[in-house]
Nucleic acid binder design. Structure first.
Lengths: 210, 210
DNA sequence: GTCTATACGCTGATAGAC
DNA sequence: GTCTATCAGCGTATAGAC
């Protein structure tokens, strides 16, 4: 199931209906503002089914989390598998994240916004989960291969993906009105070239030295 | 009250005790996992007082939000008031955000993590709030003055502050172990110079062209 | 303004028939 | 495995004394 996508089988099984309904509701209202009854109604299932399948509301959130994390991981892995430079891999990841923010908004929103500590008490935070580790690895490899500037691993990864992730947040919050894909080229340009002006006016050069 | 700081008056008034207790609890457990009784106990106040002062749990969250937003705004404004280039202002904002992530962790955490849509139904998302607007303005001014690379306003602002904000998230989640202030220099370096290696190996130049 | 005690609704969860 | 009906507990909010 590459790239977070998955052509759902025609007759959606019960599990799937529950997860889909829950995802939509969780994203729209927030985990704690959704009751099991809400999910039940939206999924056209009985409460009993929900408890049979997932053992409760937390169970749903948990399953959803691991499922999406897994799709996310496969997406990254498929990028790593391609024959690209690590810099190109970074760009590809950003491109895909932007695309999926547009086409599968709720998936991205759930993974990004959800405070997993609230329903996965002793789970490590999402930033240390494998897909994010894989993203850091790409950057790290890029540094070792001389394609990417030498820098502390955390700083490098945060710089490479931070701007894009920020754009995604702004888009999800409805602050940015245009599709993210429109911004892709400029985002990667700024990312690799830095925010220094191409030609620094003489008058500013001294002050900017700092 | 500059820079998010405020030397509290010795005998803390009731309102203040409630807000402080609520902030700590909200950050630690999440808004929905905190009951009014919890706040009451932690603040050494009665439930009645809470309802008299803030009208309920949402009222507390709301007051807290506006209060901190205000402090945040004053912090930005004080930076704008300084006699600096806009680039230096950006750096200063990042520096201060890093410092306060270390010294006043909960404030930053509340503003960054809290899903305000959940208790402020018809409030615009925080990213469009005035302090963030002010940050974008600094970048915009920098562009117009030729200190900062020409780019779409959203992209420029996201690139300038995205990496730093990402670092803050990682630090708040406990993924980064060292104080953020240790990373400041490298973060701004990467930000302004971009992630291209200073010397690109010949072998990579062709591929990296993309 | 502050407090205690109380009411009421909602929600997560279970029991038990089919 | 699926469903309906029902329970028990928590959490918000209020009433009313001080």
């Amino acid at each position: 199931m590459p790239y977070l996508t998955r052509n759902a089988p025609k007759p959606e099984p019960v599990d799937c209906r529950i997860l889909t309904a829950a995802l939509d509701l969780f994203v729209e209202r927030g985990f704690h503002n959704v009751s099991v009854h809400d999910v039940q109604k939206n999924a056209n299932v009985s409460i009993g089914s929900i408890y049979n399948h997932f053992g409760g509301k937390e169970g749903i959130a948990k399953a959803l989390y691991y499922h999406l994390l897994n799709e996310f991981e496969e997406m990254i892995e498929s990028v790593v598998a391609e024959d690209l430079t690590n810099r190109q891999r970074c760009n590809k990841v950003i491109e895909l994240l932007f695309e999926y923010t547009e086409s599968r908004r709720n998936i991205i929103s759930y993974m990004l916004h959800a405070k997993h500590r609230e329903f996965l008490p002793d789970e490590p935070p999402i930033c240390s989960a494998t897909p994010f580790k894989a993203m850091r690895n790409i950057v790290q490899q890029g540094i070792e291969d001389g394609e990417i500037r030498q820098a502390d691993p955390w700083v490098a990864a945060a710089t490479v993906f931070g701007g894009a992730i920020r754009m995604i947040h702004l888009r999800l919050d409805g602050v940015i009105k245009e599709p993210l894909t429109d911004y892709y080229d400029e985002v990667v340009d700024c990312l690799w070239q830095g925010m220094n002006p191409l030609v620094l006016p003489e008058s500013k050069k001294r002050q900017a030295a700092r």
